[in-house]
Write a protein that binds this DNA or RNA. Structure first.
Lengths: 183, 183
DNA sequence: TGCAGTGTTCCGTTTTTACAGAAACAACCG
DNA sequence: CGGTTGTTTCTGTAAAAACGGAACACTGCA
C-alpha cells in the first residue's frame, strides 16, 4: 500500500536522500520530499514517520523546512483532523522555487558582503590592486548571474521549456552574438 | 605581504569558506580556493598552510580536490623546487568547470539510476501508476536539464555573456515562444 | 647509499551534525 | 475541562566529516 513498499520507489527515495546531503540539505528532509513527490495523495506526518522510520520531531522540522522552500504544502483533507502534506509535482516549479530560496539565503547575502568589500576597497590605498580587482570582479559576476536569474525566473513556463529545448541553438537568434559556427 | 593580512581579503576568504560548506564543499577546500583566487602569484602549499593555519595534509588533499574541479592548477616556477598553485581567474570558466564536475559526479549517476528505474517500472505491472509516472517525469526533466547544460557550455564565452546580459529579453528573439508580455 | 626536501596517504582524535526520544508547550474542539 | 494533534526544545547518543600529525614514498643530489 505504502509507496515505500515498492523497491524502485524505495531506491528513488534513498538516492534522493543522498543527493540532498551532497547539496547541503539533510538526508531526512530530502527523503521526506521524495516520499511526498512519489505519493499520489497528501500524507499526514505520522505516515511519513512510519514509512521512513524517522522520529516525529524530525519529520516536523523537515516538513517546515520543505514548506520554507515552497515545494511542500499543507493541505486540509475533508473530514480529517490531522494536517496532510503534498509536494509540488511540477518539476519546473520545484526547481525554480528551490533556486529562488537558495539564492535568497546564500547568494543575496554574499552579494551584499561583496558590495561592501568592494566599496571599502575602492577607497583603500593600502589594498593590493589584485585583491581589489578580484573582489570587484567577483561581485559583478555574481550580481550579473543573480539578475539574470531573477529575469529568467519571471518568464512563463512554456517559454522556459522552449528555451531549454533549443539548447545551444539560442545563439542563432541573437543578433550580434556571432555565428553559431562553434562546435 | 600576505593576502590574508588585509582584513577585507580575509573577510572574503572566510565567507567563501562558509559558502562552501553550504554547498557541500568543505571549508578548507573553499578557503584554499579563495586564497588562491585573490593571490596574484602562484603559491606553494606551505604558504597556504601558513596563511590559513591548516595542516599540511589538509592543504594537500584540498589542492587535489580543487585540481579535480579544474579550477586550480599546478605551475612550475623557474628555479623553485616546490610545486606552486594558481586558481582560475576567469569566473565564467570557473563556474562552468565547477558545474561540469558536479554534473559528472552527481547528476549523471542520478540520471543513470532514474533511467534504470524507469525502464524497470515500465514493465512492472505491480507498480503504482503514479510512482511510474513521477519517476519517469523526473528522469526526463533532469535529462533535459543536463542536455541543455552540455550545449550551452559549448557556446563561446562572449555569446554566453551576451545571453546573460539579455536576461529575460531572450524570449523576444525566439519565434513561437510567445510574446514577452507576461510580468 | 644516504640524506634533505617535498608531497601524499593513513590513522586517530576532535568537531560537527544529525537524530531519536522525552517532555513542555500550544491550539483546537468537542 | 480533557483528548487529539502539532510544534518546539532539550538531552543524550550516534554517525559523519574535518582535521592534524606522523608515517610513508618519491626525487634529486651529494
Amino acid at each position: 500500500m505504502s509507496v515505500i513498499d515498492h523497491p524502485d520507489a524505495k531506491a528513488f527515495i534513498l538516492h534522493w536522500g543522498e543527493m540532498g546531503t551532497q547539496w547541503g540539505v539533510n538526508r531526512s528532509v530530502s527523503q521526506i520530499h521524495a516520499l511526498l513527490y512519489l505519493s499520489d495523495r497528501a500524507l499526514p506526518a505520522d505516515d511519513i514517520v512510519e514509512q521512513l522510520g524517522l522520529a516525529r520531531s524530525n519529520v516536523s522540522t523537515g516538513l517546515k523546512e520543505l514548506q520554507g522552500y515552497g515545494i511542500v504544502r499543507r493541505v486540509h483533507i475533508e473530514g480529517e483532523r490531522r494536517d496532510h502534506f503534498t509536494a509540488e509535482t511540477d518539476l519546473w516549479e520545484m526547481l525554480t522555487r528551490i533556486v529562488a530560496e537558495r539564492k535568497r539565503r546564500e547568494i543575496d547575502p554574499t552579494v551584499a558582503l561583496l558590495a561592501e568589500l568592494s566599496a571599502r576597497l575602492a577607497k583603500d590605498d593600502s589594498a593590493p590592486r589584485h585583491v581589489r580587482e578580484r573582489i570587484t570582479r567577483m561581485h559583478e559576476f555574481i550580481s550579473t548571474l543573480g539578475n539574470w536569474y531573477e529575469q529568467v525566473r519571471g518568464l512563463p513556463k512554456p517559454t522556459l521549456v522552449t528555451l531549454m529545448k533549443l539548447g545551444g541553438k539560442v545563439a542563432r537568434f541573437i543578433p550580434g552574438a556571432g555565428k553559431p559556427s562553434q562546435k
